[in-house]
Structures are given as structure tokens and as C-alpha cells.
Nucleic acid binder design. Structure first.
Lengths: 312, 312
DNA sequence: GCGGCATTATGCCGGAAAAGCATCACGGCG
DNA sequence: CGCCGTGATGCTTTTCCGGCATAATGCCGC
């Protein structure tokens, strides 16, 4: 016995709406006998009469009326399924898992989310505050679509790709009243022996790798006096004078006016904020989010904007 | 371009679950090439790749995963639609509209509802307290499936059919202390001049038709002292001695011990409780309800039960 | 590196099923 | 009674689905 197909439902709905096989056949652009047979087959498959054929018009039976509701619902659902699937493929619907390094992405993330929501309002972005290793593992395992983090070493990538989103010069964060805050920049030797606060080594190993690289070849070692597990407490520690901290410029977003950031003078290589992804598994929505993150302009004044040329 | 059919969904779900065309084809009892082509056609129709074919196994794409959920839901819905429609045709699901005359059906209706609910728990019975004319019009117009009422005249039926459910002897209802309550029955002449209360003529014209018939040929006219629009207030009126009332025996169900019912002596033709229906439109559920009403036994003692033979 | 083993894709053919065409049967209406 | 309109039936045509044989592909083990 041939199974029920959507064609049967489409045909039946047409007949049930017009209550007339001939007109329904015309609407469906098939000949009337073909339609009659399909309806007959459907009734046979259900072993239930759905219509009472009269010479003047057809009439729905009780069962036919309930089947009509059902058939309409099924057809609509099928239609929506197709539309939804196409939208997912176009990256307009669905969900993406995004890992992010909180302090590094304070500038980019809000803008990217905002801009992405405008272009793809149907995509739900799930954010995960993760360490760099967790992100790399998550992207590698397919749990994450994107990881926003400091550029990792080539061997840590192991097949993944990345795209550079921003570069942030390495700065010294100082209390506003600090002596060194008066200049436009700070020479490395001025802080080489100063007490430093830092991110905790356990949670931010790559920060310490950066510090080590910074001090390599200078014959000094950083004088770490405290470790903190978040940017907020780090800022507070500097504010109350426990020490200085070496951070990428984007931390200015978080510190607001509480700290002054001054670029290090012989400028070391800047911190690169990148988006890591698996090119195999890059979905449409993830591509869209990447584009939003790449092109997101910072709307707040003065943070990463080039200083405007002085009015002459 | 051929449209999407349920077959495509069935095939896709099988492949998506096994992630293997060959095994899925075996489960579907088709050859693997046929399955491959159907999936290819489906993807072409959606213009969306749903599966990534690998030499080791297939993998769902993002769009494929969402389409899988949708396809499963649609197939299940279709399955349920078929089951539901069959159940409706068998009279096991659905809804019936039943009109009833409240005081005439106090015995039958509760039993019928109970018994019907046991045999067809999926059918919702909608009850409508209506006058006889309203019921006849409702059944004639298809708004009601059944009308439970006193047997109407043949010409009022106009094409409808009915089935007799019960017969109730015509009785006189008296206050328990009334002189006439002492006997087992009441002779007509004993009440022919007594003050009578009655149902209101406006709402119960057929009651007055019955009264008229009862008095026809006796040379008397009923001495009506009050009219009431419900059985409850009628009972109360008799209880406080405003008059007697002529009612079918089933009113004993409502009056409880408050009134005594005594059959009229030369017994007039009894009141027939019938179910009126349109044989053209009789649905399975309505047939079931009719059967329940017909065979419903009264579980309460002594109301319509034949008096048991005395122990000798 | 190459043969074996799985995978899916392709070409071709036969048959089932759906569509089309012509016609029939039936009921209402002028 | 003939003339619409209805849906049903018989037959043919077309489409398309399924089956078979076989190719192409990628992986694994030897």
C-alpha cells in the first residue's frame, strides 16, 4: 500500500477548500481525473471517506474536517521547515558558539554583537568566557565556531586558521597621579624595575609568555608583586598604588578614567586580537559574525580612534 | 522542479540517523542508488547541502541538523494526523453537540455520559440546554448531532429520525402530606378541578400541548394557578402547597423525597423520551452516544426499575 | 605503494504510478 | 427531455522511482 505523501495533502486541501474537484484541479494545474484518483487513493490509504461527493458540490465528512486541519498544519510546517533550513544555510538563522577572552574583546565584542544582530537578527550568539587553550580545544573539537583571543602560536593552532581583527600596542597602566603618566609614552627602562601587578599565571599563561618575551634580552626579570584573576581587580590594584601593569591598549575601555595608559617606548610588537576557527566547519552564520567583528567600528570616542588632525 | 514529498523526509531521516547511505537503504528496503538520488534531489530542491559525504561516514551539515529536527517533527505529525482521522471516523475522537431537555433527561443523561465516556473517552460531548423547537432546528441545520427530548409530532420532524429511549408514565406530583399521596395512584377526576402549577407556556409549549390532550374529551379545562420556568421552582411551588403538577415520572429524580409521585389512574399514553437525529449526518461518535443512551442502566435504586417480585 | 575494503555516485533499464485525454454516468434544472 | 455541471472510468502517455551493474573515491593495512 503506497504511503501518504504531501501531494495527497496538497490535493486534498485544495478540494476541501473549494469543495469542487474540477475547480480544485484547475487551481492545482492538473486534470480532474488525476485529482479524483489521488483523493480516492488517500481515502483508501486511510480507509476513511473524507468527502461526500454530491452532484452539486462536495462536502467534508467529520473525519475529513479534522484531516483538513491536520493537513493544513503539516503543509505549513513543511513549508516553514524548508524556509528555515534555507535560512540556516544562508547564515540567517541558527546559533553560533563563540569563545572570547573578556578583557581583550571589550572593544570589539559589543560592536560586533550589535552589528551582527542587525545583519542576522535570527542568529543566536552564545558567548563563552574561556581561556585560550579552552577556546583552541573547543574550536578544534567543533564545540565552538569561533574563538576571539590573542594570536596563538602556530603549533597551538594545529590545523585551525585565524583572522586578525585588531592590534593593540602594549601599554603601561598607571594611576592618573603617577609621575610617569605625565608623558605621552613610557620608556621600557623606566618600568623595568618597578613593581608590577599581573594576571594570574594559572589562568593567563599566555600573558606571562608575553611578559617573558618583553623582558627577554634586557637582562632583567619582571618584578611581580601580585597576581589577579580578572581585569577588574587588576585595575583596582593599580589604582590604589600596588604597582603598575603592562596591558594591551584595549584595557583602556575597561579602566575608563581610573587609569592612564601610556604606550611603551621602544614599542614592542603589539598584541594581536584574532578570531580562530576551523575552516572545515565554518558555517554561514559564523562567517557573518566574523565579518561583523572585522568591520565593527568603535562608536565610542577616543578609544582606538586615530587622533583627529588638529584644526590648523 | 518536483516538490518535496514525505518520502524525501523519510529517506533523509534514515540517512541522518545512521549517517550511512548503505545501511539506511537497507533499513528502508530500497537500493542504495535510489536513496542517494532521492537525497540528492532533496538537496537540489532546497538548494542546500544537508550531508557531507565522506568515505568513512556521512556527516550532517548545520542546515542538515536543523532540517533533521523539522523532518522528524513533520513525519510524526503526519503519522498522528492519520491516526487521529481514523479515530474520528471510528467515533473514538472528536466532539458531538447534544441538545437536551433538562428535566426529562435527568435520569438518562448522567448514565449515558458516564457509559459513553467509558467506551469513547476521546470524544468531547457538548451539551446544550434547549427547547424542543430549538433542538429540532439545530439537528436539522447540522448544528446538533442529537437532540434528547419528548417525542415530537411527525410533521415537526420534517425528515429527521428519532429513536425511543425511555417511556415515563404521567404522574401527579404532590406534597408528601397531601391526602392523595396516600394511595398508590390518583384518579384523573380527583385532580381535574384541583389547582395546578405548570411549566410556563412560553418556554414549554409542548407541555401545554400534553395538558390539553390530557383534558380533551373530559369536558374540563385545567385550572392553572401558576407557571414556572424550571423544574426546580415547580417542585418548590408544589412543596409549599400552591397546587399540584402533572409531570412525567422521571421528575422523581429531581424532586427526591420532597414530593410524592403517583401515576394517573386511567393511565394516559406515557411521555416518550427520544433522541432525534439526522440520519444523513449521523457520525460515528453520535452513534456511540446513542448506543450509550439507549443501553444506559439506571444505577440508582427504585426510580425506573421494575419492582422486584415479592419474595413468596 | 598498492591492493582490498568500505563508502557514495553514475548509467541504464524496467515497471509502477501519476497525469492527460476522451468518455461515461448521474443528478438538477430549465 | 435535453442540457448543463458534477465526479468517475478506461486507456494512453509521461514521468519518475527503484533496481542492477559498475564506476569513482578515500582509507587502511600489509
Amino acid at each position: 500500500m503506497p504511503p501518504v505523501e504531501l501531494r495527497h495533502l496538497r490535493y486534498f486541501v485544495a478540494v476541501a477548500e473549494l469543495l469542487n474537484f474540477t475547480q480544485a484541479a484547475r487551481r492545482l494545474r492538473v486534470a480532474q481525473p488525476a485529482l479524483s484518483r489521488q483523493i480516492r487513493d488517500l481515502e483508501a490509504e486511510l480507509s476513511v471517506p473524507l468527502l461526500e461527493r454530491g452532484p452539486r458540490a462536495a462536502k467534508l465528512t467529520e473525519a475529513g474536517a479534522t484531516f483538513l486541519e491536520e493537513a493544513r498544519a503539516i503543509l505549513q510546517r513543511a513549508d516553514e521547515a524548508v524556509k528555515l533550513t534555507r535560512a540556516v544555510a544562508r547564515g540567517e538563522r541558527g546559533e553560533i558558539q563563540v569563545g572570547y577572552a573578556p578583557s581583550l574583546t571589550t572593544e570589539v565584542l559589543p560592536c560586533a554583537l550589535h552589528s551582527f544582530h542587525n545583519t542576522a537578527p535570527g542568529v543566536h550568539v552564545k558567548l563563552h568566557d574561556l581561556s585560550s587553550e579552552e577556546m583552541l580545544r573547543g574550536v578544534g573539537a567543533g564545540r565552538l565556531h569561533l574563538g576571539l583571543m590573542a594570536r596563538p602560536s602556530e603549533r597551538a593552532l594545529s590545523g585551525l586558521k585565524f583572522e586578525r581583527l585588531r592590534e593593540y600596542p602594549i601599554c603601561v597602566a598607571l594611576p592618573p597621579a603617577h609621575r610617569l603618566a605625565r608623558g605621552r609614552q613610557v620608556a621600557f627602562k623606566q618600568i623595568a624595575e618597578a613593581p608590577l601587578v599581573a594576571y594570574s599565571r594559572a589562568e593567563y599563561p599566555e600573558y606571562h609568555a608575553m611578559l617573558t618575551k618583553l623582558f627577554a634580552g634586557t637582562g632583567r626579570t619582571p618584578r611581580l608583586v601580585e597576581e589577579h584573576d580578572s581585569a577588574a581587580s587588576l585595575i583596582a590594584a593599580v589604582e590604589i598604588g600596588r604597582g603598575l601593569v603592562i596591558v594591551p591598549a584595549c584595557l583602556g575601555m575597561l579602566a575608563g578614567g581610573r587609569l592612564k595608559l601610556r604606550p611603551l617606548h621602544p614599542p614592542p610588537p603589539p598584541i594581536q586580537l584574532v578570531a580562530v576557527f576551523d575552516p572545515q566547519r565554518l558555517t554561514g552564520a559564523a562567517v557573518g559574525f566574523l565579518a561583523a567583528a572585522r568591520s565593527a567600528e568603535d562608536h565610542r570616542p577616543g578609544s582606538n580612534a586615530r587622533p583627529r588632525s588638529r584644526s590648523r
